[in-house]
């Protein structure tokens, strides 16, 4: 069985015939070539595959592509400005060295953007709890938290 789906990915319309068991992460990476979305654990724990679905962060490895039919998907490739300017959260990760090997970074940035929009405050405890769905195997959390706080402040001021 294949199912016809139509969705928006980073602002562009996408139509595909897909096997129902195709994961959203596989659609993005293998079919659309958007390999910025990383697959770390593939067991919905590490959050490296986090993308935004209709504005909310989700783990794209824990979702079928058919479930995204009709939705608006935003990946790490879609957040920079039209002239290529880094998103404030990306700029903050660079400024504060919020990455070591960088594998978790796309998911961290996507999760952090939603956190910046929804968190009641930007206290360290709030940020750490808000990043519970994202793991960094380098254990680089200290600078990730710094980066998220700075990025969130920049988003709120911008």
């Amino acid at each position: 069985m294949s199912v016809a789906i139509t969705l928006t990915v980073n602002g562009a319309p996408v139509s595909r015939e897909v096997d129902p068991r195709l994961l959203l992460s596989q659609l993005l990476r293998d079919e659309l070539g958007l390999t910025g979305t990383h697959v770390g654990c593939d067991t919905s724990q590490c959050g490296a595959c986090t993308v935004h679905l209709d504005g909310a962060s989700v783990k794209s490895c824990a979702m079928l592509a058919v479930q995204a039919d009709g939705s608006d998907v935003l990946t790490i490739e879609g957040i920079a400005g039209p002239n290529g300017a880094l998103h404030p959260m990306q700029a903050a990760f660079r400024e504060h060295h919020g990455l070591q090997c960088g594998f978790c970074t796309p998911g961290m940035v996507m999760g952090a953007i939603e956190l910046a929009r929804t968190a009641p405050d930007l206290e360290e405890a709030t940020i750490r709890e808000g990043l519970e769905g994202n793991l960094c195997r380098c254990t680089g959390y200290q600078n990730i938290v710094k980066a998220v706080r700075a990025g969130a402040q920049a988003m709120r001021e911008g």
Binding site: G47, V58, A62, M63, E114, E132, G133
Partner: peptide, 9 residues
Amino acid sequence: IGDPQVRNR
């Protein structure tokens, strides 16, 4: 429950 991404789905 779970983490933010899980709670969104």
